[in-house]
Amino acid sequence: MPDLITKIRRGDKGAFNELFGIHWKPLVDYASLIVGNDNAQDVVQSVFMKVWENRASLKDGNSMRQYLLKAVYHASISFIRKEDNSIHYRSWFARRIDETLASEYDIDRNDVIKALYTKELSRDLETAMSLLPPKCQEVFKMSYIDGLSGKEISESLGISVSTVNNQIHKALKILRSSLCPYKALVYILMLYFLTRS
């Protein structure tokens, strides 16, 4: 039974459509981070057109998702570099911010991006939690589920006490910088809890 890539290399359009089906959604989600919702599908389509045209040089292996994400990254960057692109920004500064941030979304250089788009994660809090290192998860459990104060947490973890007493999110910030590589997730989790409580 030849695998999908082998079939595509031989010019099998059905297999190519299957590949499209497997990766389309996360690629569009990823592209929309850089080029906005209105343009993401076009960017992804242009990438798949290229994949089909160059199907003979497709490589085997299980890193297809990463390869496609990288291609989408390149296509997205060249899209926003075009002067007359139709992305809507709420202000000139917001536009400049997005342009400045774009290069940070390179899948090879950003572990957060890699985790979000190469693992099949469901978008609920529990999964987001499970992305955190064990120590980080512990902090969240202690803080929000067990209802411990910032002081109690920092004491039990041996972290400086004075800075954490009043504002739990400041304490978590310190913990984050020393313990959690997925710091962005920590913030969003914080946001999630703070806006719910």
Partner: peptide, 10 residues
């Protein structure tokens, strides 16, 4: 960028 990525993803 990390913050925005996660915010976007969620």
């Amino acid at each position: 960028a990390d913050m925005k990525a996660v915010h976007h993803w969620l």
